[in-house]
Computed example of a mutant assay.
Amino acid sequence: MASRIYDFSLRTSRGEELPLSRFEGRPLLIVNTASKCGFTPQFEGLQEIYTRYRDRGLEVIGIPSGDFGNQELDDNAAIGAFCHRNYGVSFTIAEKSRVRDPGAIPLFAWLARQGGLLARPRWNFYKYLVDRSGLLEGWYSSLTKPTSRRMDAAMLRLVWE
């Protein structure tokens, strides 16, 4: 059974294999995203966070999902293009995946186990901060903006540790 986030692998929206071990020793922000959701403008804040902290090692990974109201496009390449074209996203966008039970991808099943029952995403744009050792540091609901004081304080702790 996986004990750290670096034990998982994803595929990008371009179909490339993405072993999370590539980011070992770096803090991560994992977000379940959707292109047609009221929270979709949070892509701007996610990009802002990525731009602000990537030189300190932060990696942001968006994982599109249609689990909540089927608010995601069906084509992975179209999802990546939408994020880049409409929000200037330069961080990694993974392929569309299931993020809630039943059938959640192993990464989201692990995040739910690590964070407990309330950490399971109940809508799009749940955010998961992972420390440099690959362990879940904390999670934030859709209502918490990526640029909120609360998230920024947590981000600062992770990138300066």
Score class of each variant (00 low, 15 high):
F8W: 06
K96S: 08
S133E: 15
K96M: 10
G57P: 09
P102Q: 11
D7V: 10
V130E: 02
G115A: 06
D75R: 04
T92A: 11
P102I: 08
E137K: 13
A109E: 15
R4Q: 14
D101C: 04
C37Q: 08
A2D: 04
G69N: 11
N70S: 15
G62K: 03
L143M: 11
S97C: 12
G38I: 09
L118G: 00
V31L: 04
T40I: 08
E137A: 14
M151R: 02
I49K: 05
D101E: 15
T92F: 00
F108S: 03
Y140Q: 05
E59M: 11
T92R: 12
P64D: 07
L129S: 02
F125L: 05
I49S: 10
N32Y: 09
I105G: 01
S141K: 11
Y140M: 04
R56H: 14
G88A: 07
W160S: 15
L118H: 07
A81P: 00
L111K: 05
L143R: 14
R122F: 00
K127L: 05
L158E: 07
M151H: 01
S133D: 13
W110A: 02
D74E: 15
H84V: 07
R22A: 13
N86Y: 10
R122G: 15
S65F: 11
E17Y: 01
D7F: 05
Q71P: 10
S148L: 05
P19T: 05
D131H: 03
S142T: 15
G38Y: 04
I63K: 02
N32K: 06
L111N: 06
L18H: 08
E48R: 14
R150N: 10
R157G: 09
C83P: 06
S9I: 03
L73T: 07
E161S: 15
R100N: 12
G66M: 03
R54P: 00
W110C: 05
A34K: 07
D75A: 08
I5N: 02
R100L: 12
P27A: 09
T40Y: 05
D7M: 10
E44H: 13
D67V: 07
R52L: 13
F82W: 06
A34I: 11
L29K: 02
